[in-house]
Design a protein around this nucleic acid. Structure first.
Lengths: 319, 319
DNA sequence: ATGAAAGCGCTAACAG
DNA sequence: CTGTTAGCGCTTTCAT
């Protein structure tokens, strides 16, 4: 800026103001300055501004990104969320700092003006660690679980209820819920599912499921059918589980959906292209990402922000 | 640091050195300083260091993240790449700045010490724009296309050849390649495929395909079968196209793999769980991400880096 | 509408 | 092994 100032015959501060679009500077001067900056290939120094302004214009996004097979398969979900976040944040001048929590947070990350935590998961240690950084934070996950945080999540209860209502409408009376309720979002789905069913005097079976994988879904269903061969509806907490379940059902000679209806969760491409195409509860991750971004921004800028629940709807396909 | 210096009874520079783990400072002093820092909740100011050091310890990752249905479906691929990149970069002190190219680059992004460009795609404008930033850059894509850049890509030619060899081994003689060669990586796959086939005096059909989607794959195959009903092998440039193709084939009464063999590309969970499970050319995106990260880092640190091609292998399943 | 002074918090260079 | 000096490039007062 000092150089530009010399070249343009003004002072450094005028350069600063002109480049920042301050109304204090004469439009003609501003235009000339911008042109000179352009010509001379001037590159603004962000670090200097950040030092002076005591902020980094950066939001850290913390993702669980263990390169595990199961997580990989959870598919486009984190990417869409990231897409929404990035879109919203970059269009308002913030940058997205992507990070996992492995091996302790970097200085850069701790310097972020705010943090978005994706998936509080079953272990909420991540949340507490991040909270220790003392930065504005927004969490993606189960809204009901944390009154003290700002949490954005989709309406898991409603999602569960939608599945239940569908089963009722189909005249099903022996429903199963597949998913580990240790996971906050799954617990909410089960709650909604059970509540809606109970209005019809029905209680779902809830077999143990060890993980998120297709294999786990299949295994759980195999075990389940031994004890309860007469189940006629299955609601899985994820499309992966649902797919595993369908596989097991078919192996056991059940027809889907004639003998048993199946509904998954997340409406993934995986489910949609599966044969038979999977009915599933849809949530809009891109919108969710945008919302998360808006909320951290609000928090960073000192405005209030509250937890929020996003709508959810049932996509009916073949199952 | 000045405060810590006062408290610990040393000078600021000693604090700086101690916290940076410099061997110049007495181990006892260093330990004491670290403890004091801890106690008083000292937070290191990254911007100041960045200003002083003239670097940001940040690598920008440029992704095409248009929230289009087709792109979403390309599934875990960008996420695994990102995972590998993040893992490698954060473990060496760099942060990952995620960004799309929409709406012009932010100052933060241009301040990155290096750039990783994911998917030069068909339009290489992104590459040229990024190149203008004058930062060390590494590209993920088709290696053969750009002699001047450092490009990391998987061995698309070999992937194509593997598919061809498999078809030959199966005694297939009327193969098809499905994919738009305007896309650099697809062009390489076709090259490898054709070359390997030509050694057996065979040339593949290459019907027009408009995009990456399941629908496009199905459409192309429907059209193809009108003219060339006797095709007996199909190699698709992506699993999505392959799945679309299979759907169309079945609709037209062909049996897979009895009447026609199908091989996809990317070995996605989508393909693996499809019915029938799709044979596909596998590439390891996590490794690729790690490699990309290492190469930018080398470039940033003034070391040389060269383009590199990652191995690829064929995963045989039912098709 | 423009400028002068001052300082954000850190570290390289050069003593001691 | 420790300290002094200086300055990275910007922007917020407070003048003019």
């Amino acid at each position: 800026m000092a150089d530009l100032a010399r070249i343009a015959g003004v002072s450094a501060i005028t350069i600063s103001r002109a480049l920042a679009g301050s109304p204090l500077v004469n439009p003609d001067t501003a235009a000339r300055i911008k042109q000179v900056a352009q010509q001379h290939g001037y590159a603004f120094n962000v670090s200097a501004r950040n030092l002076r302004l005591r902020r980094s214009m950066t939001v850290a996004v913390v993702v669980e990104m263990k390169p595990t097979v199961e997580r990989q398969m959870s598919g486009p979900y984190p990417l869409d969320l990231l897409g929404g976040i990035t879109q919203e944040l970059t269009s308002t001048g913030y940058s997205v700092l992507l990070t996992s929590l492995q091996g302790g947070a970097l200085p850069n990350v701790q310097a972020a003006d705010g943090v978005i935590l994706l998936g509080q998961g079953a272990h909420e240690d991540a949340m507490h660690e991040v909270q220790n950084w003392g930065r504005p934070m927004v969490v993606w996950g189960a809204v009901s679980r944390h009154e003290t945080q700002v949490v954005v999540g989709s309406d898991n209860r409603r999602g569960g209820a939608l599945a239940a209502e569908r089963f009722i409408a189909l005249g099903r009376s022996r429903p199963v819920f597949l998913g580990d309720p240790a996971h906050g979002e799954f617990a909410e789905r089960l709650e909604g599912f059970s509540q809606a069913l109970s209005r019809h005097g029905i209680a779902p079976l809830t077999p143990m499921v060890s993980s998120f994988t297709v294999g786990a879904g299949a295994e759980a269903v195999h075990a389940l059918l031994q004890k309860h061969p007469q189940v006629d509806a299955l609601f899985a907490a994820s499309d992966l589980l649902a797919i595993g379940a369908i596989r097991a059902l078919i192996e056991r000679g059940r027809r889907v959906p004639e003998d048993i209806s199946v509904i998954g969760y997340d409406d993934t491409p995986l489910g949609a292209t599966y044969v038979p195409p999977l009915s599933s509860v849809h949530q809009n991750f891109i919108d969710a990402g945008v919302l998360l971004a808006r909320k951290v921004r609000a928090l960073i800028e000192g405005e209030p922000a509250t937890s929020e629940t996003l709508p959810t709807h049932l996509v009916l396909r073949a199952t």
